[in-house]
Amino acid sequence: MSTKQSRTAVLAWPALLLVALGFIVPVAIILVMSVTDPQPGTQNFEWLATNSTAHDIMWRTIYIAVLATLITAVLAYPFAYLMATSSTLVRSILMVVVLLPFWTSMMVRAFAWIIILQKNGLLNTVLGAFGIEPLTILGTNTAVLIGMCQILMPFMVLPMVSVMVGIDSRLPLAARIMGAPKWKAFLQVYFPLSLPGVFAGSLIVFILSLGFYVTPALLGSPRQQLIPNALFTQVLELLSWGKGGALAVATLVMVGAVFLLLFLVAKVMGIKIGKIGGGL
């Protein structure tokens, strides 16, 4: 490393320190606790491997995370496309629309959904006016998904837009003058080129959706717990740091596996892995 590089490397220290203290140290502690609490041994992981409630919770969490990722991807893509292909003014307006939810807290948004989705809420009142039976949404996974997707949308839209604005707008035109109808030009040229953005967004959204606590707590049901809520119960209510630790380690492994899977898929599809990072 040249002296110039080593001098500028100093700039990275505060961030590195924060990551070390705020992330690596606690994770290490949890790892240790998962094999030492209440006594040294693998009993926490045995519990995780054999307890069917824990399995249900894990599968449900993955299922919801996958659904949330798919739904946000499908909803975000046309929006991002619109943003990337419109004038600077329209793009700025749409950007504000995307970022608007960031200006209100998750808690407030969850309560807003309660008002809309509850038994005598806004949604059912409107449906009732059309003579449609009231729906039971609040307290189900559907409500959790709705709440999560709304919060996660910007994390999907932004990486998509950043990749899409980099796509040469003449490429679909080139495809069209060569005889491709509009939909083919999109499918064969624009869409494949936008995939790095879809991948980057999906990765972020999937990982984030494994960690939602407030939304499922307020919109879901205690009988349909997700990992973060189960963790809370284990650690703060049952004071079982070991079991909580095992659950956390399992989540970490899951995230790692998804990372690996996406990178492999990207590689097979010929998408540059560097580009996924570049899309963030």
Binding site: A174, I177, G179, A180, K182, P192
Partner: peptide, 20 residues
Amino acid sequence: IPIHRRNIGMVFQGYALFPH
């Protein structure tokens, strides 16, 4: 007539090759 049915070849300024 829509673009794709005009039966025209085109060379763009700055190539416009499909990068993928």
